[in-house]
C-alpha cells in the first residue's frame, strides 16, 4: 500500500508539472506575453523595459523555469483590476465556491447513492424506472438552464427563494458561511441544487449500474444463503464492492463541481472564484486567469490523488496489482 501510494504521489507531481507547462504555453505564449504582465494601458517603452526586467527576452525554457519558480513562491503576478496579488484575490473568493461545491456534492452523494441503490434493488419497479428516466434527463440538462428554470419557478413565480447573491453574515466555528443561518441557506439552496443536478443524475446511474452488476454476483447469493441480514449484505457485500468505482466518480465529479460552479455563480451572482474568472476573462485580467487555472489544477490533482489512495485502501485487489 505504501509503495502504491508513493507511485500515485509521484504521478500527481508529474501531472502538475505537465499542466503548469500547458497553462504557461496556453496563457503566456498565445497573444503577447507582455500584455499579461503589464497593465494594458502601458506604452511601448514601458513594455520593452518590463520584458527585459521579467526576462521575456530569454529563451523559452528559461522563461518557463522563471515562471515556475515564481509560481512555487506563490507569486503569480498582480491583478490588473484590483492591483492585489492574483493569488490573494482568488483565495478571498475560494471559500464561497468551495461552500457551493460542497453543498452540491452533499446533495448529489446524499441523494444519489441511496436512489441508485434503491433503483437497483427495486429494478423493474415503475418508480425505479421513473428515477432512472429522470436521471437520464438530468444528464442532458445544461447546468445554466436548470439554474434559470429554478429561478423562474422558485423566485419569480412562487417568490420563495432569493434569485441571487450570498448571505454569509453568520459564522460557524469562526468561518463566515451560508450554512449557519436560514437566510444563508435560502440563498444557497437554488445554486447548490442546480449545480448538484447533473452529478446527482450521474451518481444515480453509476450506483445503479454498479449495484445491478454486483447483485448478480455469486458472493451476494452466497451471502443470502448464509442467512446474513439485508443490511449486512447491503453494507459488506454490495457497498464495499462498488465503493472504489463510486469513489472515483465522486472524486472526479467534485472537481467538476468546482469547475462548473463558474456557470452557477454567473446565474446566481454568487461571489465565488468562478464568477471572478469570467470577470477576469472579460477584462483580460490574465494574472487572475493564470492563478485560477493553476489553483484549479492543483485542487484537481489533490482530489485525484486522495481518491486513488482511498481506493487502494478499499480494494485489496488494486493493492496487489499496483503494488508490484
Amino acid at each position: 500500500m505504501g509503495y502504491g501510494a508513493l507511485v500515485r504521489i509521484a504521478q500527481s507531481l508529474l501531472t502538475l508539472l505537465a499542466m503548469s507547462v500547458l497553462v504557461f504555453v496556453a496563457i503566456y505564449l498565445i497573444g503577447n506575453p507582455i500584455e499579461l504582465l503589464v497593465p494594458p494601458q502601458a506604452n511601448q517603452a514601458e513594455m520593452a523595459r518590463a520584458a527585459q526586467a521579467l526576462g521575456l527576452d530569454q529563451p523559452l525554457p528559461v522563461q518557463y523555469l522563471h515562471f515556475l519558480g515564481q509560481a512555487l513562491k506563490g507569486d503569480l503576478g498582480r491583478s490588473f483590476t484590483s492591483n492585489a496579488p492574483a493569488l490573494t484575490v482568488i483565495f478571498e473568493r475560494m471559500p464561497a465556491t468551495l461552500e457551493l461545491a460542497l453543498a452540491a456534492a452533499l446533495i448529489a452523494v446524499g441523494l444519489g447513492i441511496p436512489l441508485g441503490l434503491w433503483s437497483a434493488f427495486a429494478d423493474g419497479h415503475p418508480a425505479s424506472r421513473a428515477t432512472l428516466g429522470l436521471a437520464t434527463l438530468g444528464f442532458s440538462m445544461p447546468t445554466f438552464w436548470i439554474a434559470l428554470l429554478l429561478v423562474m419557478v422558485f423566485s419569480v413565480q412562487l417568490e420563495w427563494l432569493p434569485s441571487g447573491g450570498r448571505d454569509a453574515s453568520a459564522t460557524l466555528l469562526g468561518w463566515r458561511t451560508s450554512l449557519a443561518s436560514w437566510q444563508g441557506l435560502a440563498h444557497l439552496a437554488m445554486p447548490a441544487c442546480s449545480l448538484a443536478l447533473f452529478k446527482l443524475a450521474l451518481i444515480i446511474r453509476v450506483t445503479y449500474a454498479a449495484t445491478i452488476d454486483t447483485l448478480r454476483l455469486d458472493h451476494v447469493r452466497q451471502a443470502r444463503a448464509r442467512g446474513l441480514s439485508p443490511a449486512r449484505i447491503l453494507w459488506a457485500h454490495v457497498l464495499k464492492n462498488i465503493g472504489a468505482p463510486l469513489l472515483n466518480v465522486i472524486g472526479l465529479e467534485f472537481g467538476a463541481l468546482v469547475a462548473f460552479s463558474v456557470v452557477t455563480e454567473t446565474v446566481f451572482a454568487w461571489p465565488g472564484m468562478g464568477r471572478l474568472l469570467i470577470d477576469a476573462i472579460n477584462t483580460l485580467d490574465r494574472p487572475v486567469i493564470v492563478a485560477y487555472l493553476l489553483l484549479t489544477v492543483v485542487l484537481f490533482t489533490l482530489i485525484n490523488l486522495a481518491v486513488d489512495i482511498a481506493c487502494l485502501a478499499i480494494d485489496p485487489r488494486l493493492r496487489e496489482a499496483r503494488g508490484r
Binding site: T15, G255, A256, A259, V262, V263, I281, F300, N304
Partner: peptide
C-alpha cells in the same frame, strides 16, 4: 481527468 468545461474555459 479534467472536466471538459475547465479545458474549454
Amino acid at each position: 481527468s479534467f472536466p471538459t468545461i475547465l479545458v474549454a474555459l
